[in-house]
């Protein structure tokens, strides 16, 4: 077993892991952060998307030991501590960006990463759809998700 220290949603957390333990397993099973979902477990669906040092990654395809000493943000770290939803989360609710909700944590984390990556540039529908290539949704047909991300991005940058 290896001891690792992660900064998760701003707080330092330690865990004892095997080298083969995946980041998503540590988050869910050791740290109790079950908002990060395991969908396909084969790096396709993006339900396990978290931010590592500010960049979106698939936590099912990343070893926990690789994240030792680094910053991890999960869906639990997105809303305010008092429960007020982040503008992106609020936009998903407002624009019907989810049905069953299973893919939603990954969608929101990808949405936040794409806003960050396109800072200062418009996030049009084509760009959003292209940037969502790593996230699958089996309910919505994506239309509500795309609308939600456009509205969330506008709200985050003060344009909406």
């Amino acid at each position: 077993m290896v001891k690792i220290v992660l900064k998760v949603n701003g707080a330092e957390r330690t865990a004892e892991v095997e080298p083969r333990t995946l980041l998503v397993e540590v988050l869910r099973e050791k740290l109790g952060l079950t908002g990060t979902h395991v969908g396909c477990d084969t790096s396709q669906c993006g339900a396990c998307t978290v931010h590592l040092d500010g960049r979106s990654i698939k936590a099912c395809t990343f070893l926990a030991v690789q994240a030792d000493g680094r910053n991890v943000t999960t869906i639990e770290g997105v809303a305010k501590p008092d429960g007020t939803l982040h503008p992106m989360q609020a936009a998903f609710r407002e624009h019907h960006g989810l049905q069953c909700g299973f893919c939603t944590p990954g969608m929101v984390m990808s949405a936040l990463a794409m806003v960050e990556r396109h800072k200062g540039k418009p996030l049009d529908e084509t760009t959003i759809r292209h940037e969502l290539e790593g996230n699958l949704c089996r309910c919505t047909g994506y239309h509500g998700i795309v609308k939600a991300i456009a509205a969330g991005a506008a709200a985050m940058t003060g344009g909406g």
């Binding site: 790096s43 960049r55 979106s56 990654i57 395809t61 790593g134």
Partner: peptide, 9 residues
């Protein structure tokens, strides 16, 4: 290549 998450790794 792949998707944004894959490209970040």
């Amino acid at each position: 290549i792949g998707d944004p998450q894959v490209r970040n790794c």
